[in-house]
Design a protein around this nucleic acid. Structure first.
Lengths: 232, 232
DNA sequence: CGGTAAACGGAGAGACTTCTCAACTTCGTG
DNA sequence: CACGAAGTTGAGAAGTCTCTCCGTTTACCG
């Protein structure tokens, strides 16, 4: 008590021993590679092995798999936010939207883990505190601007965009090892369909998901890991 | 030898005891439900339990999970073939193609297992002997006809179609529990993009997968079960 | 009926997870 | 330079899964 504890919410408790810090970096680097390749389902044994440490070390540094994922993808998510913000600065509303979608998809196609982090939630709380919550409003403005300018179909809604990302991301996973750029073909088709094309656009057959429903959908996508936690 | 064995390739060896036959049906029915809901990753314990039999009984009837899947989806795949054939009989080439894609997607959206059976292979051999091999040429004719009539973009290739199905199927899985028809929105966009729209169509940025590459991609999609088998 | 081959069930082997813990090693400081 | 706190380790607990084995039950045929 008298040993001058840092103010209660100071992030630095004590500067981590040199070897520990080095191992932390190694673990993060290994996790980055492994998750990018195999998705979040990759095992911690694999990661520990690739980092050259024992599993125990991983668990000493990160209380559980979920928090390792959080630590890893925190800045990746910020990167996505920056991306959306930058896209808002492009003058042409169409170019802005397309630029964002393209770059976001490129990131997701290159990193299977990132895709899963962004498009699924666990226990209803999104992974990486408020990831989607931060991105959504910016993308919302991007979309509204394009619709206002009349360059995007009026009946496209904000929740359609993550779904689009999910679908194309899934396809990118599918073809990753063979020809990782193939998703761009389907993306081209979608983009042409997204564009306001006057009267020959087919009307939407069903209404869009709303925000809550989208959240629900993401929850279900939590798959195996979530189920296991539920049972315990 | 002298006990008059049926001719060597006769399918009927002996007409299965009454209770055995009844259980076989139950297992198939249970598997159908469970696979449709949870995909092929569903456990055989679940299936056995829902069928009201022990796991042992399942394994007595079907040597392994793969063969249960085969038995179950054999006629579903034939259904898909029939679908494509029927679509060829629609006079309008555009309507024919759209009809097939729509119906196929409807089936896949309603049955998670079916999607996985059609779009993935194990050990390079497609599940349900020659499933894709039977469907592909018919769909090929469907697509060629539409391209020849000038109603579909010239730069769309046959391997693009299963990829499209995969992407939309993944999205259907995602939203299944919340609003199972939502995939139709993205499908609308894609369809509008697929249509030959004259000079405002964005050119394809990368070439299509060829048949071999598609096969490769499917192989990778075999995921966990395939990996396990590889190790053993 | 009664005998027997067929069918059944579920415990358990073996492979895979995530996560824990007690014994050992190393850092860095007084 | 020695000693305590911090860090490391890998075996193992408890949970998934697939698939096997064998003691018990059941349908069928004479």
């Amino acid at each position: 008590m008298s040993t001058a504890p840092e103010s209660p919410d100071t992030p630095v408790r004590r500067p981590l021993r040199k070897d520990a810090e080095r191992n932390r970096e190694r673990i993060l680097a290994a996790a980055s590679e492994v998750f990018a390749e195999h998705g979040l389902a990759a095992s911690l044994d694999d990661i520990a092995h690739r980092a050259g440490v024992g599993v125990g070390t991983v668990y000493r540094r990160f209380p559980d798999k979920e928090q390792l994922i959080d630590a890893l993808f925190e800045d990746r998510v910020s990167e996505m936010v920056a991306l959306a913000t930058a896209a808002l600065e492009i003058d042409d509303p169409w170019d802005g939207l397309v630029h964002f979608l393209t770059r976001a998809l490129e990131l997701q196609a290159a990193d299977r883990g990132l895709k899963e982090v962004i498009l699924s939630t666990v226990d209803g709380r999104s992974r990486v505190a408020g990831g989607r919550e931060r991105i959504a409003p910016i993308v919302g403005r991007l979309l509204d601007r394009a619709k206002a300018a009349g360059v995007v179909r009026q009946d496209v809604e904000l929740p359609d965009l993550p779904l689009l990302q999910f679908a194309l991301g899934a396809m990118a996973d599918y073809t990753r090892e063979v020809a990782p750029e193939t998703w761009r073909r389907l993306f081209t088709l979608v983009l042409d369909g997204l564009r306001a094309t006057g009267p020959d656009a087919t009307p939407m057959p069903v209404r869009s998901l709303d925000q809550d429903e989208l959240e629900q959908a993401m929850l279900c996508a939590g798959t195996a890991m979530a189920r296991r936690r539920r049972n315990a």
